[in-house]
Amino acid sequence: MIQVLSQPWPWYVAGPLIGLTVPTLLLLGNKAFGISSSLRHICAACVPANIDFFRYDWRKESWNLWFVGGIAIGGLIGNQLLTNPAALTIAPATQEALQQLGVHDFSSGLLPLDLFGWASMTVGKALVFLVLGGFLVGFGTRYAGGCTSGHAIMGLSNLQWPSLIATVCFMIGGFAMTHLGLPFLMRLAGL
């Protein structure tokens, strides 16, 4: 059983399980699936700074913080207890393109440690991949009113056209950054 679970799960197992989160949260207490809101609740709890946007009773939304806390524990279990015995397979074309951009670590796991590991972290890499990237994720999702879960999955499941616009823009942004921005940013980061 553990052996089967330790293999990478195919999309047709993972996708439906993620989709089932939508009715699960609704049935458990009328909660709309969404993750980026947790960032707002943490701001409201820790540094509201008298900003209107953070002045609400975040405790009423604390289920969402338990949910993301659970995701972190799930990440631990998934990577440590159900460790994939084999190396990650990467599409050859992607690997080749990334190699040309200066990425070298394709074998240590889910993330390249030359970009996201402490050992080879430099100020340049941290500023681009952690600080800039993270800021855009936090700012962009809140400005858009949701992320991949709230818009792409929950919103599209509920046939909301603003969510379709948001999802299309997520993808356009991702394609533009991957093909136009990353080559520049990776040089800037010193790769």
Binding site: G134, A144, F170, G173, G181
Partner: peptide
């Protein structure tokens, strides 16, 4: 949804993560 969506898309490609995967 347009401007924020594009900015999040940029961040998604840089970090390889939406908010859920970050955790």
């Amino acid at each position: 949804q347009i401007w924020g969506g594009l900015l999040f898309g940029f961040g998604w490609a840089i970090t390889g993560a939406c908010p859920g995967p970050l955790f």
